[in-house]
């Protein structure tokens, strides 16, 4: 009966994952391997294709962007900023998706509300970085719900510090993708990350650790059944959590640097909330 409960938990989290995350790994891999026929993504590989591709990119206006002087947003120098702003909008939307997913983890909404906030504050960027991995290969990444493929070389060619933002994620993703997790494995792994009992400022750690332990058991069983030939996959996956924390720390420092150096940049209020006093 215990194993049956763990399988039920795995199914539940997989269903929630499918419900809240529009671009699954299965779909992303189909796009990346050219199995979607006529629906091949638009490729952005230089400034010209970036400008052509901008119409595809979800570029909702940021709430406080309308008060920015428009003159400073023209010209080639502003392309990076404009692209960065649309990345922010998508990230804020993704935070909402992750929050809904977190709320679907059994027991999460019964935790102390302050602790729910802390778990999301510290977990959400880690989750977003893990979720980038299925969208990436060594040559580039899908963006904009899979409508666009942006090359790694193009991202590296942006001016500093924008060119430094994605390269660590590519390095991590290429290694992470070797593990060949599928969407049902990912759902459990994301829940494990969210339920980390060592986040700073948690008030009631015990119930969080208890929830995480159950999800960890479910993940271990899932990996044994789903990847019977992949030795030590569970241990290898847990080791990724250490690398992930370093990537998030570096990412947050880079954003803080951007905030100081890019006078025209406005950070989305939700992302600002998350990154304030984070690391």
């Amino acid at each position: 009966p215990e194993a049956a409960d763990l399988r039920a938990l795995s199914r539940h989290l997989y269903e929630a994952y499918l419900k809240y995350f529009p671009l699954t790994k299965a779909k992303a891999r189909a796009i990346l391997s050219g199995k979607t026929g006529d629906n091949a993504p638009f490729v952005i590989h230089d400034m010209k294709s970036l400008m052509e591709g901008e119409q595809f990119i979800n570029c909702k206006q940021l709430p406080n962007q309308e008060h920015q002087p428009q003159t400073s947003h023209s010209g080639m120098d502003a392309v990076e900023l404009r692209f960065f702003q649309s990345c922010q909008s998508r990230s804020a939307e993704a935070v909402r998706e992750v929050t809904e997913f977190a709320k679907s983890i059994p027991g999460f909404i019964d935790l102390d509300l302050n602790d729910q906030v802390t778990l999301l504050k510290y977990g959400v960027i880690e989750v977003l970085i893990i979720m980038m991995a299925p969208l990436m290969n060594k040559d580039g990444t899908l963006i904009s719900y899979g409508q666009i493929f942006m090359t790694r070389e193009f991202l590296k060619s942006l001016r500093k510090p924008f060119c430094q933002m994605m390269e660590p994620k590519f390095e991590f993703s290429v290694k992470f993708n070797v593990l060949e997790l599928d969407d049902s494995d990912m759902a459990l792994f994301l829940a494990v990350i969210i339920l980390s009992g060592d986040r700073p400022g948690l008030m009631n750690v015990k119930p969080i650790e208890q929830l995480q332990e159950t999800v960890l058991h479910s993940l271990e069983l899932q990996l044994k059944l789903n990847h019977p030939d992949s030795l030590q996959l569970f241990a290898k996956l847990l080791q990724k959590m250490t690398d992930l924390r370093q990537i998030v720390t570096d990412h947050v420092h880079l954003i803080q640097l951007l905030k100081k150096t890019e006078i025209d940049m406005c950070l989305h209020p939700l992302l600002q909330e998350i990154m304030k006093d984070l690391y």
Binding site: R96, L120, L270, E273
Partner: peptide, 21 residues
């Protein structure tokens, strides 16, 4: 903590309609 994280808090509390981001 809730005061400093109003949007996150709102996202957590809002069970149906997504907050206008």
């Amino acid at each position: 903590l809730k005061e400093k994280h109003k949007i996150l808090h709102q996202l957590l509390q809002n069970s149906t309609s997504p907050v206008d981001l």
